[in-house]
Write a protein that binds this DNA or RNA. Structure first.
Length: 780
DNA sequence: CGCTGTTTGTTTTTT
DNA sequence: ACAAACAGCG
C-alpha cells in the first residue's frame, strides 16, 4: 500500500489528525467517529513518514484490551504495506507462512518497542525501573519487587487499622468510605501530612490518621495501591529531575485515548513528561515532540474514580494555541458517525443536548435512518429478560446473517445480569458475561496468587497471612497473633520470623510444624524465581501445598468448580509466558493485578454479551438492549440530588445508546426484585428525554389489540401518568417518589396547598419533600 | 482450633 | 436472595 492509499480511507478531519506531527493536538471525537482509526494510523504515520523510532512513542489506552487491539491494528497496517512492497500482493493474498513470517518481523522491529498500555500498566513499568530512587516526604521507600494491592487488600488493611491499631468503631468509620476518602486524597495528590493539614473536624482528623497508618502499612508490605501507581511517579518526577529528564527524552510522542476520563494525577504525569516540568503555557520546545489526545466530554463516565472532563475542556488553554474553534490549529473535531443508524443517533443527540456541561457538537449520521427504537414496558425483571430472549429468537429467525455474537444487553449494575442469565440458560442462548466477579477476585485464584506474591516480595505480609493456613495446616489465630506480635516487637516483617526455625519454635509452640512447612514452601520457590518459568512455579505451588488435592477430596460441585478455576489460572500463566517478552514472576503478578475481566472478551465468539454500561465503552454491537431504565436504578438513586451526577448518568445513557449499530431496544419493569423484596418501579426520566416520534412501544401496539389483556389491565394503574395528589397524605402511606422510588410516609407537615411530607426510603433514610413537585403517588 | 448456625449487609460504575 | 462475617460451641 502506498502512502497515498494509506491516507485515502480517511475523511478530511481524520486525515488532519493522522498527519499531525509535532506540537499539541486535541481530537474531539464523537462516538463512532473513527477515533481508534485516527490513533492507530497516526502512530503508523509517525513511524513510517516521519521516521520516529517506535521506542519514543507512548500511547495510553483506557483498558488492556484496547491496548492489545491497538497493537494488532498497527501491526496489520504495516503488514499490508510491506506485503505490497515485498511481494507486490495484497496482504490477504499471501500464504500462511509468509504472513506469519512478516508478522513476526514487524513485531520484532516495531510493535515490541512501542509503549502501549493503560496508565496503571505503563507507570507500574516505569516504577519497576526507578522506584528505588523515590522517597516520600516521611522517608518511606519501596523496592522494585513491590506488590500491587487490589481493592480488597487495601480495604482489609484499612479495616485492620481502624479496628486493631486505632481501636475505633468500624461502624462509625466504615472501612469502605474511609478507603474512598483516602483514595480521593491521593487522586488530588495529597500526602497523609498534607491531607491532615486541611482537616478541621474530628472525623477528618481520624481519617487523616488512618491514612498515615495506611501508608505505613503499604510501605511495610513493600506494596502500592492503584492510586500510588500514578501518584508515586508524579512525586518521583517532581523530586528527581534526572529521572524525569530520562523519561521526558524517551517519550517524545505521547498519545492519550479517552482523555475525558483522565484524573488530576494522570494529567500531571502527562504534563510533566511533555514539558519536562516546565509550565505548559510557556513550554515551546516542540521539535520532535508531540502531545495528541483524543476524547469526548459527552462520554465522560468515570468521575466516581476522580476523572475530570474539564481537563479535556482545558486542553486548548494548557497546550494549545487558545484560538477560536474555527481558527485553531490545535483542535480537530470528528463529527461524522459511521456506526449507528440515523434514528439511533438522533435519539442520542437529543438526549445529550439536555446536559449543560459539554462541548457543543452534533454528530452527523452517515447511515440511513433504519428501524425505529423499541421501548418495552415489562411487568417485572423476569418479563424483561424473556422479552430479550424472544426478540433475539425472532431476529435470528428473520435475519440469517445474524448470530448470537451480534447482540448485547447493557445494564447499570452488575446485579441486573442475574435474571437475564437465568432466561438465557432456560432458552439455551449462549452468552458471555463481562465484568462482575473478576477472575482474579475468586477466592481460590487469590489464594494461589497470594503464594506467588509472597514468594516475589518477602515483605508482603498481607499475602503471607492470607495463605499461612490455607490449606489448613493447624495454624490458628492465636499462633498468628503471636507471630505477628513477635515481628512487631522486633520491628521486622513477619517473614523474618517465619524464616527462622528457632523463633518459630519458641513463638508458635505446638503449631510450629505447620508454620515451618509453610515457610519451607515459600523458601523453596523463592529460590527458583530466576531459573524457572512462571507456569512451573504455579504448578509447583499447587503441588507442594496440596491445594487442589484438598479440593478434590472435598469433591463437592463447588470444590470442583474451584479446581477448574485453578486450572484456568495455570492456563493464564502459560498464555502470559507465550505473549510476553520478559515473562518474569513480577511481570506476571503486575499484569494479574491490573487485568480486568473486560480483557477476556473475545470477539468472534458467537455469544450474546452481557455487561454494564461502563464496561461497554468503546464497543459496538449491531443490536443492543438497554435494560432497567427505571428511576433510582438508572439514573442511580445516589445521583438524584446532584444535578451534575444526573448529567453523568445521562452521559452513561448516551454511551449505551451509541453502542448500537442497527437496532436499539430500551426496556423498564414496573416491578423489580430488590434485596429479595418486590418493589414497584417508575420509568426513568431518560425515556421521556428521547424524541417520542422515533420510538415504538409495546404499550402502544398492545392497545391495538395484539396481546391478551394481562398487561393491559395493569396499565391504567401504573406510572406514565403521574397525577400528583395534593391532599390526603397520611402517615403510614406507601408512596412512589419520582426519583427516590418507594417509601413510607413518616410525617405530614402543614395542610392544604402548603403541605410537605417526610418519607422513609429503605436505602436513603428519611427525606422531606413537597408532594406537588415531587410527583408523589400513593400505592394501594 | 475448626466447625456450625446465625446475623448482616449488599447493588453503582473500575484501573 | 444470597454471601460473607461473626459468634459460640465441641
Amino acid at each position: 500500500m502506498s502512502n497515498t492509499d494509506f491516507l485515502a480511507h480517511l475523511n478530511p478531519s481524520q486525515r488532519r489528525s493522522v498527519e499531525h506531527y509535532c506540537g499539541a493536538l486535541l481530537v474531539v471525537a464523537g462516538a463512532g467517529s473513527g477515533k481508534t482509526r485516527a490513533l492507530t494510523y497516526r502512530i503508523a504515520n509517525l513511524i513510517r513518514t516521519h521516521r520516529v523510532d517506535p521506542s519514543h512513542i507512548l500511547a495510553v489506552t483506557f483498558t488492556n484490551k484496547a491496548a492489545k487491539e491497538m497493537r494488532s491494528r498497527i501491526e496489520l497496517l504495516f503488514a499490508q504495506q510491506q506485503a505490497e512492497l515485498k511481494f507486490g500482493k495484497a496482504w490477504g493474498a499471501l500464504d500462511q507462512y509468509q504472513q506469519t513470517q512478516m508478522r513476526s518481523h514487524i513485531y520484532k522491529t516495531i510493535i515490541k518497542d512501542l509503549w502501549v498500555g493503560t496508565f496503571h500498566g505503563l507507570f507500574s513499568k516505569v516504577l519497576r525501573f526507578d522506584i528505588e530512587k523515590y522517597q516520600d516526604d516521611k522517608g518511606r521507600t519501596w523496592n522494585k519487587n513491590f506488590s500491587i494491592f487490589d481493592d480488597a487488600d487495601c480495604q482489609g488493611l484499612v479495616k485492620q487499622i481502624v479496628v486493631k491499631q486505632l481501636d475505633l468503631d468500624d461502624k462509625k468509620f466504615d472501612p469502605r468510605s474511609v478507603r474512598y476518602a483516602i483514595s480521593t486524597a491521593k487522586n488530588k495528590g495529597l500526602s497523609p501530612e498534607a491531607y491532615a493539614r486541611d482537616q478541621n473536624d474530628y472525623k477528618g482528623r481520624v481519617i487523616a490518621d488512618v491514612y498515615k497508618h495506611y501508608q505505613d502499612a503499604l510501605c511495610a508490605n513493600n506494596a502500592l495501591d492503584f492510586d500510588d501507581l500514578l501518584l508515586v511517579p508524579v512525586q518521583l518526577f517532581r523530586q528527581n529531575a534526572q529521572v524525569l529528564d530520562y523519561w521526558h527524552r524517551k517519550f517524545r510522542h505521547i498519545l492519550v485515548d479517552e482523555y475525558q476520563d483522565t484524573n488530576r494525577t494522570q494529567y500531571d504525569l502527562i504534563q510533566l513528561l511533555v514539558t519536562n516540568g516546565v509550565d505548559s503555557k510557556t513550554f515551546d520546545a516542540w521539535e520532535h515532540r508531540s502531545i495528541f489526545v483524543v476524547g469526548d466530554a459527552d462520554q465522560s463516565i468515570y468521575s466516581f474514580r476522580a476523572a475530570d472532563f474539564t481537563i479535556l475542556m482545558n486542553f486548548q488553554d494548557d497546550f494549545g494555541d487558545s484560538q477560536a474553534d474555527d481558527l485553531t490549529k490545535t483542535m480537530v473535531k470528528l463529527e461524522e458517525n459511521y456506526r449507528s443508524r440515523a434514528n439511533i443517533l438522533a435519539a442520542a443527540n437529543h438526549l445529550i443536548q439536555q446536559n449543560t456541561q459539554r462541548i457543543d457538537k452534533i454528530l452527523v449520521a452517515t447511515r440511513s435512518e433504519g428501524e425505529p427504537i423499541f421501548l418495552y414496558t415489562a411487568d417485572n425483571e423476569i418479563d424483561e429478560a424473556e422479552f430479550i430472549v424472544s426478540q433475539i429468537r425472532k431476529l435470528l429467525r428473520e435475519n440469517p446473517e445474524l448470530n448470537h455474537g451480534n447482540f448485547a444487553a447493557l445494564y447499570r449494575t452488575n446485579a441486573q445480569s442475574r435474571p437475564i442469565e437465568d432466561a438465557f440458560v432456560r432458552a439455551q442462548i449462549p452468552y458471555t458475561i463481562v465484568g462482575g466477579l473478576k477472575f482474579y477476585d475468586r477466592r481460590e485464584v487469590k489464594d494461589i496468587v497470594a503464594y506467588m506474591r509472597a514468594i516475589a516480595n518477602p515483605s508482603d505480609t498481607v499475602s503471607l497471612l492470607r495463605v499461612i493456613n490455607t490449606p489448613r495446616r493447624g495454624v490458628g489465630q492465636t499462633t498468628i497473633d503471636n507471630l505477628q506480635n513477635a515481628a512487631h516487637q522486633l520491628g521486622v516483617p513477619l517473614w523474618e520470623i517465619l524464616n527462622d526455625d528457632t523463633s518459630v519454635k519458641t513463638v508458635a509452640g505446638r503449631s510450629s510444624k505447620g508454620v515451618l512447612a509453610f515457610a519451607e514452601i515459600i523458601n523453596k520457590w523463592r529460590g527458583e524465581i530466576e531459573t524457572r518459568p512462571v507456569v512451573e512455579i504455579v504448578t509447583g505451588i499447587i503441588e507442594d501445598t496440596g491445594y487442589v488435592t484438598e479440593l478434590q477430596t472435598q469433591g463437592t460441585d463447588e470444590a470442583l468448580d474451584r479446581v477448574q478455576n485453578i486450572q484456568e489460572l495455570v492456563n493464564a500463566t502459560l498464555q502470559f509466558q507465550e505473549e510476553n517478552e520478559t515473562p518474569s514472576l513480577e511481570n506476571y503478578l503486575a499484569s494479574a493485578a491490573l487485568s480486568s475481566d473486560l480483557d477476556n472478551l473475545q470477539e468472534g465468539k458467537e455469544a450474546v454479551s452481557l455487561m454494564t454500561l461502563h464496561a461497554s465503552k468503546g464497543l459496538e454491537f449491531p443490536i443492543v438492549f438497554l435494560v432497567g431504565l427505571e428511576a433510582g436504578l438508572f439514573p442511580s438513586y445516589r445521583s438524584l440530588n446532584d444535578p451534575l451526577a444526573v448529567e453523568e448518568e445521562r452521559r452513561l445513557c448516551y454511551v449505551g445508546i451509541t453502542r448500537a449499530e442497527e437496532m436499539l431496544y430500551l426496556s423498564h419493569a414496573r416491578e423489580r426484585r430488590l434485596y429479595g423484596n418486590r418493589e414497584p418501579a417508575v420509568r426513568s426520566q431518560f425515556i421521556g428525554e428521547l424524541p417520542p416520534e422515533l420510538i415504538n412501544s409495546n404499550l402502544r401496539t398492545k392497545v391495538k389489540g395484539q396481546t391478551t389483556g394481562k398487561t393491559l389491565h395493569k396499565e391504567p394503574k401504573t406510572v406514565g401518568t403521574t397525577t400528583s395528589q395534593t391532599t390526603g397524605w397520611r402517615v403510614g402511606d406507601r408512596v412512589i417518589h419520582r426519583g427516590f422510588g418507594v417509601g413510607q410516609i413518616s410525617h405530614v407537615f402543614g395542610d392544604g396547598n402548603k403541605q410537605s411530607v417526610a418519607i422513609k426510603f429503605p436505602n436513603l433514610g428519611q427525606k422531606i419533600v413537597d408532594p406537588k413537585t415531587a410527583g408523589l403517588q400513593k400505592i394501594e
